[in-house]
């Protein structure tokens, strides 16, 4: 038997953008990232590395608006947050509300769960009956 290093190939779909490149990721026996093929841009490599260590996702959802022409504003995390924190983050987001008017880009919640990532409004909600 040859004493070749034990590597493992993993199939993965890059979700950085909607193109969805099919990645073939090679990891060593301890699961450490070695290489990736199939990515059309450098973000694919970064994604594969991160997906193997601590996968991250942008969280899109909504927050209750008080006195707005809509009952909700849509929000998202400004950057991706660790996937394992998604449900804890939802719990925090569910507990907050914001007064109308809401401006797109407005920070709704700073530094959610100490991730260093803000939750921002992704739509403008005017006050009920006018501005």
């Amino acid at each position: 038997m040859k004493n070749a290093p034990k590597t493992k190939m993993m199939d993965m779909t890059c979700v950085v953008c909607p193109i969805g490149c099919h990645l073939k990721v090679t990891v060593d026996e301890n699961g450490n990232f070695l290489s990736v093929t199939g990515n059309r841009c450098p973000r694919g490599e970064a994604y594969a590395k991160e997906e193997i260590t601590d996968p991250k996702r942008v969280l899109p959802t909504s927050v209750k608006v008080i006195g707005g022409e809509l009952p909700l504003t849509s929000v998202r995390t400004e950057k991706a947050i660790p996937k394992r924190l998604i449900f804890s983050a939802m719990k925090v987001i569910k507990s907050i509300q914001v007064n109308a008017p809401v401006k797109r880009g407005q920070i709704i919640l700073e530094n959610i769960l100490d991730t260093g990532v803000n939750v921002i409004a992704t739509r403008t909600v005017k006050k009920q009956n006018g501005k």
Partner: peptide, 15 residues
């Protein structure tokens, strides 16, 4: 309200 819009036109991932 999900993200993933605008990669080509705005060069970022928007809702």
């Amino acid at each position: 309200i999900h993200n993933g819009f605008g990669v080509h036109v705005f060069k970022q991932e928007l809702s």
